[in-house]
């Protein structure tokens, strides 16, 4: 029995024999190789690149130039007010690529190919969410540059501003795992795209991202105060020092402790969805 397996359990050429076991080293290797695959895709499919760079520029310009004259934010300028909102909206939408991309890979049979290889079962998901992280970081650079041009300024310290960027990217990264799980469950890239648009668009608009939620009708105001996007936006606003003087953020616990809320949210999302997504990945196959 032993002789049978040692003679047959490996490639015939000793040069092409796969490593005998999965280690931390192969885990890093697999994560990097799948990340590289997604980076190459960003380079090869220009519409993703165009969308991720032009769309944030468009939003910054539209909001700062079209609405700034009409919307009065006491104690601040509208441009300073909305930048945190645009940051949050952009990175949340940036995380949805993981959903449609996992559904697409499943449909095309690439997931099946990966699953017949002796790679770490988390690698494809790590590579995928890293791809989103890269896209979001890229969007961030563009948004910050555009924001500075139209008059946005960081009123806190450099360190706090870096913490603000890190918090937004971290939240988006955790959200990518949720979307990756949903992408594998729903299996249709089109459905994932349409549904995430239908859910996330209202979610980012019924929040404090673009207008102070105190002016909203009561049901919407209550929704906005408990909306996780509001906590995310307020946390970013605080870290960039863009909270207007005398601004009433809201009485809800998340809005009284926005940074803590986001950090708790990140931990909860990762603790729940990383294992869920990996478990799902181990059993999925095209059909």
């Amino acid at each position: 029995m032993t002789t049978t397996t040692s003679a047959t359990g490996t490639a015939r050429s000793p040069d092409l024999r796969p490593a005998p076991a999965n280690t931390i080293g192969t885990w890093f290797n697999d994560g990097w190789i799948t990340t590289r695959r997604n980076l190459i895709k960003i380079k090869r499919v220009p519409d993703i690149l165009v969308f991720t760079t032009l769309q944030p520029i468009m939003f910054v310009l539209l909001f700062s130039q079209v609405y700034a004259g009409s919307i009065d934010i006491p104690g601040s300028s509208y441009t300073e007010f909305i930048m945190a909102g645009i940051f949050a909206q952009t990175v949340v939408f940036g995380s949805t690529y993981s959903g449609s991309a996992m559904a697409q890979d499943l449909k095309e049979g690439i997931i099946d190919r990966f699953r017949t290889l002796p790679m770490s079962p988390s690698a494809v998901l790590i590579g995928r969410t890293n791809g989103d992280l890269f896209i979001n970081a890229l969007s961030f650079v563009v948004m910050i540059a555009t924001g500075l041009v139209v008059g946005w300024r960081v009123r806190s310290s450099l360190l706090e501003a870096i913490a603000g960027v890190a918090l937004l990217l971290l939240f988006a990264y955790a959200f990518s795992w949720v979307m990756a799980f949903l992408g594998m469950s729903v299996r249709s890239p089109e459905v994932i795209n349409n549904v995430s648009f239908l859910v996330l668009f209202p979610l980012t608009f019924i929040s404090n991202a673009f207008v102070p939620s105190e002016n909203l009708p009561t049901p919407l105001r209550i929704f906005a105060e408990w909306n996780p996007v509001s906590a995310l936006v307020l946390a970013a606003r605080q870290l960039f020092g863009n909270v207007p003087d005398g601004y009433d953020a809201g009485d809800s616990w998340p809005l009284q402790n926005p940074v803590l809320t986001v950090l708790i949210g990140v931990v909860v999302l990762l603790v729940v969805f990383v294992p869920l997504a990996i478990r799902k990945f181990r059993t999925i196959s095209s059909r």
Binding site: R37, I40, V45, G109, D112, R113, T116, S286
Partner: peptide, 12 residues
């Protein structure tokens, strides 16, 4: 494994 279900990446 090769065939209908084990595809290649179109962008690579």
């Amino acid at each position: 494994a090769s065939g209908q279900y084990a595809a290649v990446d179109e962008n690579l």
